[in-house]
Amino acid sequence: MSDYQYAVELNNLTKRYGDFTAVKEVSLQVPRGAIYGFLGPNGAGKTTTLRMILDIVKPTSGSLTVLGAPSAMDVRERIGYLPEEKGLYKKMKTWAVIAYFARLKGVGGKEAKQRAYELLERYGLKDFSDKKVETLSKGMGQKVQVLASIAHQPEFVILDEPFSGLDPSNQQVMEDVISDLNKAGSTIVFSTHVMSHAERICDRLLLIAKAEKIFDGTIPEAKAIIPKMVNLSGVDDPNKLRALPGVTSAESTDGLPGSYDVCMADDADPQQLLRDCFRDDIELTSFNYREPTLHDVFLHLVGEDAKVASFR
């Protein structure tokens, strides 16, 4: 195992298809051992970036290293990949598909078969080991494909939309798989357009929209970007609110009478705001302070355009 600090390093990576720019000058460092989320709306350039990392697609300009090597092809046996659209050989037996992909990654024949059976058992698909893939349900097929992409115990795993198409309980299984892998020492990069998954399991994340990187860093760093927000209702006079210290703005919440979103300065304390409201005799029926979500962060960074994009 070679020594490298970053599992992936991208330097001004750009991919153009004719006049269309799919990825524009993205630079990024994925630390070894991290769980790194690629977030962005559909068509933002996530898949293209992942494909460039895998050397399936050649970048138009810029450079990258993967596990210290200039191309993923040089270290492909140490990388696992789950593509965005899922599919398997329908006519093959479940264990054989997993073993086949493991063998392509350099695992010996016997070893591959054994690992396939182990993985199927561990993730509750034991009964389907000797069945043909076409007999599996969609969710099971997807699980099998995930197992196929990690059966060679890769030190770096790329998962493109691993949660799409899974029901909540299988999404949980998927999260378990990711954290199991991470505990075993693998670096993981996954893409998603569902913020909540990223928020739960990522160490770091990359936000990408319209081919450009708009943020990368840890989740607290991301959340620190947007101001603290308090929602007040039953407010009789918003001007009194706006005069309070630490309040930067107070906008009516979606036109609801008496309801206001209050943005606060970075160093302001929501508790103090509540005390100030009482002190100044501002009428309130509710006071609601919540941590910003990644969704809020994203909306803040991308602006109104992102709302149009398909988001959950």
Binding site: R51, L54, I56, A72, R76, I79, Y81, L82, P83, E84, E85, K86, G87, L88, Y89, K90, F101, L104, K105, Q145, A148, S149, I158
Partner: peptide, 15 residues
Amino acid sequence: EEKSNRIIEVLLSSA
């Protein structure tokens, strides 16, 4: 078949 169900991408990442 490989192309339509995207197995080809996994193959391309392995070979």
